[in-house]
Design a protein around this nucleic acid. Structure first.
Length: 111
DNA sequence: GACATGACGGCAG
DNA sequence: CCTGCCGCCATGT
């Protein structure tokens, strides 16, 4: 039985490729993997990643630049704190200059 | 095997 | 501009 763990592996890979001080979105990763509307799966993968690898999930936010996944961190403030520690300005769970800090693998990584 | 849920995204109202 | 609903794929019950 072959399970497409490749999907998860790719997600982790992409997230780990995100440069420090930059952020990416679930949709961007999903699009990069071919799942245009599979952003949910990316989030699911992140949930698994939380216990699997050293995936910097704190660099992954939703398309609005909001730290929607902070509730899965421990403590909840960890996500924002980690981002700020990397130079990402966060205010009220919203990444400042998100558009400028956004790192889209589909655009940055050229096959 | 079916139903419900989920760290999202897009579109309609 | 803000709110709400549907769609996508996978996992858990």
């Amino acid at each position: 039985m072959k399970i497409n763990n490749q999907f998860y592996d790719d997600v982790y890979q992409v997230v780990q490729l995100v440069p420090t001080g930059r952020v990416t979105t679930y949709g961007a990763i999903a699009a990069y993997l071919g799942l245009k509307s599979g952003a949910r799966m990316v989030g699911w993968a992140m949930n698994a990643a939380h216990s699997i690898a050293d995936v910097p999930a704190h660099r992954v936010v939703n398309r609005n630049g909001v730290l929607t996944g902070r509730h899965h961190f421990e403590p909840i403030d960890a996500m924002q704190k980690l981002l700020e520690a990397e130079g990402v300005e966060v205010n009220n769970n919203q990444v400042q200059e998100f558009r400028k800090l956004l790192w889209e693998p589909i655009k940055e990584i050229i096959l």
